[in-house]
Write a protein that binds this DNA or RNA. Structure first.
Lengths: 143, 143
DNA sequence: GGAGGTGTGTCAGGATTTTGACATGAGTCA
DNA sequence: TGACTCATGTCAAAATCCTGACACACCTCC
């Protein structure tokens, strides 16, 4: 006898499906802009909080700092962000968006916002706030 | 420490975070059983609906059929499932769990259920049903 | 001052996934 | 029958991510 019961009724399973569907839709929306979801996530976090280090960005996007390092190199190569050649304190190097990076972020942000708008079309303001709170509860409970 | 500002108010961003946290917790819970999340997902779907083909399993778990093929090979190698040597109709080969596969699934299902229980500790029955319905709405709207 | 612990950046290797491609089997329709 | 379309399985290459490891910088405590 399965502990999970009907798979279609498992919150965890549907959560995973919803996240996968969202990621796929974001991927499609970002492909014309030549950005991956990981790259966009990095830019978005940097747009909100400038000057974060590699490790801080990794934690914010739920990937390892090694993976984030690869993303940062690619974005730096393309001129979308800058890092000082050497750290001023410790080993961490604060990352900043360039003007071109801000332009790319603006375009990507619009594309992703359209996807999120489509995902939440069936919710009113109260419903969205409620869903957001529920997801925060889940995230914190399982972390 | 790292409040991300407006990003923390994005349902899509928090959905991604919650799914990532859940995946990490599932990974930890399944590691003692020598199963990855992908492998468990495959077993769980097969436990619910036996006889699915490679492509059907891939769609059910939101991965490509190439990736699912790799998972199926590993599980078949370990004797957790069986596939007929050749297809009886078309090219699809229906997959079935072995007795050992069912035992592994039962143990994994218990471990994952504990994680999900922890994730939903803060919800009552109505809250869980509501969250499940909201996630289904999101999934279908963005697919 | 020195030892130990923590956080950070980076390198290397392996595992997983995706993209692109090709061949096969089944169904549709002229 | 033959051309066309579609779904499936599979192979190969590339991209991505993770695990393990190492060195460096800072901090605390003795």
């Amino acid at each position: 006898m399965s502990q999970v019961g009907d798979l279609g009724m498992s919150v965890g399973y549907v959560l995973k499906q919803a996240a996968a569907a969202l990621r796929g839709a974001m991927d499609d929306a970002l492909r014309p802009l030549d950005l991956t979801v990981s790259q966009y996530s990095c830019l978005e976090v940097l747009g909100q909080r400038s000057g974060l280090s590699n490790s801080e960005l990794a934690r914010a996007t739920f990937v390892t700092r090694q993976a984030m390092n690869q993303v940062l190199r690619g974005l730096q190569e393309r001129g979308l962000l800058t890092r000082p050649a050497e750290a001023s304190h410790g080993r961490s190097r604060p990352t900043e968006l360039t003007d071109e990076g801000r332009r790319a972020l603006a375009a990507a942000s619009r594309a992703v916002a359209a996807v999120e708008q489509r995902m939440l079309a069936g919710f009113d303001d109260d419903g969205r706030r409620r869903l957001l709170g529920d997801l925060l509860t889940c995230r914190d409970a399982v972390s």
